[in-house]
Design a binder for these strands. Structure first.
Lengths: 107, 107
DNA sequence: ACATTTGTTCGTAATTTCACGAACAACGAA
DNA sequence: TTCGTTGTTCGTGAAATTACGAACAAATGT
């Protein structure tokens, strides 16, 4: 099955995109991209969802590899997974910003 | 309700991300980002899905505003929606590539 | 030891996504 | 007009997503 039409990079990019595909998760990611870390308790206060729902969203971001949690008892400190974050940058940058500034006649 | 915690831009970005959150759709987008246009018939041949399923995916990309179809009877020619594509570039670029090259100690 | 704080897990329900085949609509060609 | 091509829509079912509250687990503080 080397005959893959859809590349590994596309699978990865889709996976990252899916994780970003919810306003709550986008909010958390953007916050972490400019704040270096946060605690879920603070997020629960400002976001219109209960803590269990937030926990699910954070878990998805974790599973996608975009963030990581670190125990800082009794709380948990979340921050970006810089390694994968960079990979996401590369993957998205690779196809997102092609021929950006051209006066392209739509086909 | 000016008290929005989650911004419009975050909603938009999440919407675009969600549309990109499937390998098939990522494949189509990447193809269009380097090929300027394509026909769904060709896609059906190379992709492991039936035409009705592909039609659904293309519809999602259309609804998200990322692509547009143009009748070129008897086929339909698809290409990127350059305007929204650029918006997606800006939105993603805005939070995706912050402090990229720093020797960041993860918190 | 006990209560409090913090966050995850579980159970549940409504909604959405994904995929398929069948039926349909639009159009060009014979 | 009839046929073949192209793509959408409809109906269906399986699986995933989203959200909530209740229950639970871990660690700190009293």
């Amino acid at each position: 099955m080397t005959n893959k039409i859809i590349t590994e990079d596309q699978q990865k990019a889709a996976r990252y995109a899916k994780a970003m595909g919810h306003p709550i998760r986008m909010y958390v990611l953007e916050l972490l991209s400019k704040q270096s870390c946060c605690y879920s308790g603070d997020l629960t206060e400002e976001l219109p969802i209960v803590k269990s729902t937030l926990s699910q969203h954070l878990k998805e971001l974790k599973n996608a590899g975009l963030i990581q949690g670190e125990i800082e008892a009794p709380r948990i400190k979340y921050c970006l997974n810089r390694e994968n974050w960079k990979e996401a940058q590369v993957l998205f940058g690779k196809f997102l910003k092609m021929d950006s500034e051209e006066p392209f006649t739509n086909c």
